[in-house]
Design a protein around this nucleic acid. Structure first.
Lengths: 204, 204
DNA sequence: TAGTTCACTGACTGAGTAGTCATTCCACTG
DNA sequence: CAGTGGAATGACTACTCAGTCAGTGAACTA
């Protein structure tokens, strides 16, 4: 019972999983789930294919592990940013800024995340899980909007529709940046987006 | 040289291609490109697999044919609606309404269209083609916004970012409807969306 | 009626790939 | 240094599936 911190084995093991996930994210981002092969990932991680299966039970689980990490981080960061901010307008800006910045620094993650959205209408690879994540994300925005609505800060429009619109607007700007179609800096995009959204929903 | 209208063969041939494409759209919408099999489509169309290859050279071409038709229709309808409308605000409403209504009646198409967006960051199935379609769609919106900007109808924000935001907002509402998460009627969604967008961009 | 054509069929082929497992390698122990 | 256990390997298996093609039969033709 050598119970101090981490055993050597644990360290090595974590290092390996980490390397595998890094490689997986690169490969899945570049090719998508179906076209990426397990051999690609093994090669990218610098290990033999068999080794992958010592750490993960299947290709899908590798994918999910690579994906979940980012999704959780992004969701947590968004939530935290919103909670910290004061006024509705500040919350909005915090939300937009946090997400755009996160994606800017995790481009491989964004590509997977974005691709997975495409599967939302035919749940396959990630089954129900990601659908629920999306629902929760919208629900968080929805709750925020309902509160603001009660305080009369925003106009009386269906909050569900507003939440979808805001969420996807942000995602659209992310896509634009990833495709290299934006000349603006992140901050400029944040600024423009906040302007549009806030003018769009605030009570006049 | 029996050159009146269509020969019997042509009629039969068109009927077959039509049936195949209808089946293809159903299958691709339900499973996505990779998980859909050619056998699925053949079964859905009520013909043998070999028959598909009399009408289309490959799985990918079936997919593209099923996809292109809808994309072109939607793009044409959007453009036409916008051109017919008078003021900027009317153009916006025409754009939103046309698209939401089209998707409402072509749900299978929307699922393919939506899924294909996910591949935009790793061009594979549709290669460059769909990327260009998307670019053109944004460009149409962008041009519209630039004109309005020159006339001082909307506020001075980057038109590219605005176009992305608007486009994706509409797409987000489509997704919401397809997932069955919207209690609103199409017209109510159109109304809400127009409100948000117009308030968001019009000059104050 | 016998002959010809051709759309159609579906069993088959071959390529590609997820997952396995007998073997090798190496770090550590006594 | 010999012995041991477990991590790592990669050739191999089992399977899926896009695409093929020899064969069938129904509709025409002479």
């Amino acid at each position: 019972m050598k119970a101090e911190g981490k055993t050597k084995q644990e360290v090595v093991s974590e290092f390996r999983s980490g390397e595998i996930l890094r490689a997986a994210r690169r490969v899945f981002a570049a090719k998508g789930f179906s076209l990426a092969t397990v051999d690609d990932i093994a090669e990218g991680a610098g290990v033999a294919k068999g080794t992958l299966y010592l750490y993960f039970p299947s290709k899908r689980e590798i994918y999910l592990a690579a994906f979940r990490e980012g999704v959780s981080e992004l969701a947590a960061a968004s939530r935290e940013a919103v909670e910290k901010a004061g006024t509705m307008r500040e919350k909005l800006r915090a939300y937009v800024a946090t997400r755009l910045r996160y994606v800017e620094e995790h481009r491989d993650f964004y590509k997977i995340y974005h691709a997975e959205f495409g599967n939302l209408t035919h749940p396959s690879t990630t089954d129900e899980w990601f659908l629920n994540v999306y629902r929760e994300q919208l629900e968080m925005l929805g709750a925020l909007l309902r509160e603001a609505l009660e305080r009369g800060e925003i106009r009386p429009l269906p909050t569900g529709a507003m939440a979808s619109a805001v969420y996807q607007m942000v995602k659209g700007i992310m896509l634009r940046r990833i495709l290299g179609w934006s000349d603006e800096t992140v901050d400029e995009d944040v600024e423009a987006l906040c302007e549009i959204v806030w003018s769009g929903i605030k009570s006049s």
